[in-house]
């Protein structure tokens, strides 16, 4: 626990996403579709010291539990993140996100000539993870590579 982190009060029920790569907390909020106007209590802590990552971000959201798809997306932009589910001020479950070796459906191929971009074909884009840090994902159909910036751009745009 760092002194800066302690400035943020505990939440009663909800989710704490910890060990987010420094500077990516706002991307996590985009993935969760949170703008602040929903009325949920949200705490965002950015660039605090971390033993594991050097620096890290933390997001706390009162009254929210994540869907699996959201967890999978967070894994792609913050592969070291841990997700703590809080009930009555206690951590009842702590999960480390995991990037699966094959990612299906969450991302689009950047190559317009890839078969996976054809709207009339029954096809789901599929990528395998060549490297986690730096992130490199390769389209199983055409071999086009997505890097971390590509992935963030895709996951956080509308």
């Amino acid at each position: 626990m760092t002194s800066r982190e302690l400035r943020v009060s505990k939440i009663k029920d909800g989710t704490v996403i910890d060990h987010i790569d420094a500077g990516r907390a706002l991307h996590v909020l985009r993935i969760l579709g949170l703008t602040g106007s929903e009325g949920l209590v949200i705490a965002v802590v950015m660039n605090v010291p971390s033993r594991k990552l050097g620096r890290k971000d933390i997001v706390k959201v009162e009254g929210l539990e994540l869907r699996e798809e959201q967890v999978n997306k967070i894994a792609l932009i913050a592969p070291s993140a841990t997700i703590n589910i809080i009930r009555d001020y206690e951590v009842v479950e702590k999960v480390k996100v995991r990037v699966p070796p094959i990612v299906e459906g969450l991302l689009r191929c950047a190559n317009p000539n890839c078969i996976s971009n054809q709207p009339r074909e029954p096809i789901t884009p599929r990528f395998y993870v060549r490297s986690l840090r730096p992130l490199k994902m390769v389209c199983e159909y055409c071999g086009t590579e997505l890097n971390q910036d590509d992935v963030i751009r895709q996951l956080t745009s509308a």
Binding site: N113, C114, I115, S116, E121, I123, E140, Y141, C142
Partner: peptide, 22 residues
């Protein structure tokens, strides 16, 4: 289109041979 042969191979039961994709 790139990847068309791989996709065809997923759709087909019989073997698919790529004669060139993109």
């Amino acid at each position: 289109l790139e990847g068309a042969a791989r996709f065809a191979a997923e759709v087909a039961e019989h073997p698919v041979i790529n004669g060139g994709d993109g």
